[in-house]
């Protein structure tokens, strides 16, 4: 009982803290925040792998301005991204699309992890010990005897 309690109490504290901590994090966002978030998912065509949110290259600045304009006009994230894809191609989005051949990039790691974890679980089953169980009285006597011999010195 005491032990159950000593595990339950920290668990309860964690749940309460996480509930408190997750509230208030997703209030209504300002359009500047939304534009910033979208810019983080759009690739800067002139730089290696940077998003337009983190680059001051001219092309990045131009795309950022377009995002600001579209967000201010009330477009959703999907609409803005679709508009950018139609003018710059699929490669402008840092997140690969979820469908088609490109969708494999999302599926493969998850599938790989599931297969590997399954393999590991199977391996553990196969490894199930054949000689289980705590040491017997005889084992203990043997160890004690060895210990006494050692203590007595060579």
């Amino acid at each position: 009982m005491k032990r159950t309690l000593s595990i339950l109490v920290p668990l309860l504290v964690v749940v309460v803290a996480l509930v408190v901590g997750s509230s208030g994090s997703d209030g209504p966002k300002t359009s500047a925040e939304r534009a910033q978030a979208i810019a983080g998912t759009v690739r800067c065509p002139e730089c290696q792998g940077q998003s337009v949110a983190s680059s001051d290259a001219p092309a990045a600045v131009a795309i950022r301005e377009e995002i600001d304009r579209r967000v201010a006009a009330g477009e959703s994230e999907e609409e803005v991204q679709a508009a950018l894809v139609s003018s710059y191609g699929e490669g402008v989005l840092l997140n690969p699309p979820g469908s088609g051949v490109a969708g494999l990039v999302w599926v493969l790691p998850v599938a790989g992890l599931v297969v590997a974890a399954g393999g590991l679980a199977l391996a553990f089953r196969r490894w199930r010990p054949s000689t289980a169980g705590p040491p017997s009285e005889e084992d203990r006597r043997l160890v004690d005897a060895a210990r006494r011999r050692r203590r007595a010195g060579p």
Partner: peptide, 23 residues
């Protein structure tokens, strides 16, 4: 996978995609 995937897709499909920070 994320690093080489754009290359694979380009080689197979001749399509350019990016795999970046959000992924």
């Amino acid at each position: 996978l994320g690093t080489v995937f754009p290359l694979v897709v380009e080689a197979v499909n001749d399509e350019r995609i990016s795999v970046g920070t959000p992924y």
